[in-house]
Design a protein around this nucleic acid. Structure first.
Lengths: 243, 243
DNA sequence: GACCCGGCTTCCGTTCTGCGGAAGACTCGA
DNA sequence: TCGAGTCTTCCGCAGAACGGAAGCCGGGTC
């Protein structure tokens, strides 16, 4: 059970709490202080965690080095980067790439833009599928059981505009399938909307989605659709898709 | 000792071998097959590894999510990205960001360019400090004991141009300190050279280096120096440096 | 300066988890 | 069909991991 505890300890670190003291790690994992102390010390000895001058722990470079070998990073994120950068350059807006994981999307990359709307996601962030453009795209092309799993639970409302009615989400999924893109308007925050499109691999399966996230200020989001879809298709080709 | 073994198993994955079968993991770690099987299974259960349809293991998304919380990723790479992208855009060349780790540099980010020279490094890659522009910059500003540690061992030669003579490396370090940049010419491969500059944090310490990597085709590399230094200074300011 | 509190470190008797060799199942190529 | 290589399962044993208790340390307050 040490392996599970090691992963629990590593999992104690979050976007909101990327650096933690020993006591806090013990609290978050439910492990006794002594046990936590031992495991944390061993992880630090191995480079998976670093301890700062302030006594707090952070994820270490060694773990990062190993983790970037994940296919999501190498086969997906790296190959997508040139297209994300292209879209970033021509639109001057935030650009993101995400994959589906259960009922959430995980952001593999997010390129922010200086004058663009400030957004909550970053590399490694998770957000619920129903409330994001990339999430709706991924769900639209997920197996039916995944859709059912997502819609079986109450959907979280982030803004007055967040669509939480399963029937309306289903309708949005149908629309995504037929149109090939999603416009997700003020679902997470009142100030931003995103335009998302699917990324396919060589077998035609949708393995990721990418989006541009812009200020919800009245600008017609449809103007971004061609560029987003083109970039998504470019990534798909880089992944070996043939259409 | 399980923690160390867990890290050994994860460390079996490399840039050259990002996906491995059970037997190969056991071989690389020196662990008995049964032990490896158990640890790998536990890591897969926790999402740190994924097992493909082909029976081989890869680093899992969950580990990646945790690992991107490393300060190198959040405090350094993310803050550097806008400046890396700027330099990438204006030069149309490969751009990289790296940190020092022992006698090697670890690349935090590498933006490749379509028509640029193909280079060997990518995110997570390691290369020896003496043979890279970013490495010489980092070494130039490292504590003296680090310099001694690096120069105490034979330096690896990659091309006929690789500088392996400690005296010449010391001279290069001195030059880097006084000029504020490094031009590393055909040290790793015969076809490329890099121009690198230091990135400082709020205390003035050099915590990273960035570079542009271009084709060694006679173009005067000095033309890139102002832009690289400007981008490095921009990153430094983003990290709180005051000069 | 004394005291308190919270965080962290060390000790050590106990226990239960991890160990790994052996045997067998499975897959693939010849 | 057979052999080789890979992977899976079993299980008795031992030592690695456990975690409560005691103590150390540093910072803040009076």
């Amino acid at each position: 059970m040490v392996t599970a505890r090691v992963l629990d300890v590593l999992g104690a670190f979050t976007e909101a709490a990327p650096e933690l003291g020993l006591t806090e790690i013990a609290r978050r994992t439910g492990l006794p202080l002594t046990t936590t102390h031992r495991i944390v010390g061993e992880l630090a000895a191995g480079g998976a965690l670093d301890r700062g001058d302030d006594g707090r722990y952070r994820v270490g470079l060694r773990l990062w080095e190993i983790a970037v070998l994940a296919p999501a990073s190498t086969m997906l994120r790296e190959r997508a980067m040139p297209f994300l950068e292209d879209l970033h350059e021509v639109t001057r807006e935030n650009v993101a790439l995400a994959v589906l994981d259960g009922a959430e999307v995980v952001y593999l990359e997010r390129l922010s833009a200086r004058d663009a709307v400030s957004i909550v996601s970053r590399s490694g962030s998770r957000l619920p599928v129903h409330a994001t453009g990339v999430g709706l795209v991924l769900l639209a092309h997920a197996p039916p059981d995944v859709v059912e799993q997502v819609l079986a639970r109450p959907l979280r409302r982030f803004t007055p505009h967040t669509v939480c009615d399963p029937a309306r989400v289903r309708a949005a999924l149908g629309e995504a399938r037929s149109s090939g893109f999603v416009i997700s308007d003020r679902q997470i925050e009142d100030v931003s909307l995103s335009v998302a499109a699917p990324v396919r691999d060589r077998s035609g399966r949708v393995v990721a989605a990418m989006s541009v996230v812009v200020r919800a200020d009245g600008t017609n989001p449809h103007t971004y659709v061609p560029a987003v879809r083109a970039a998504a298709r470019g990534i798909s080709r880089a992944l070996g898709a043939t259409t």
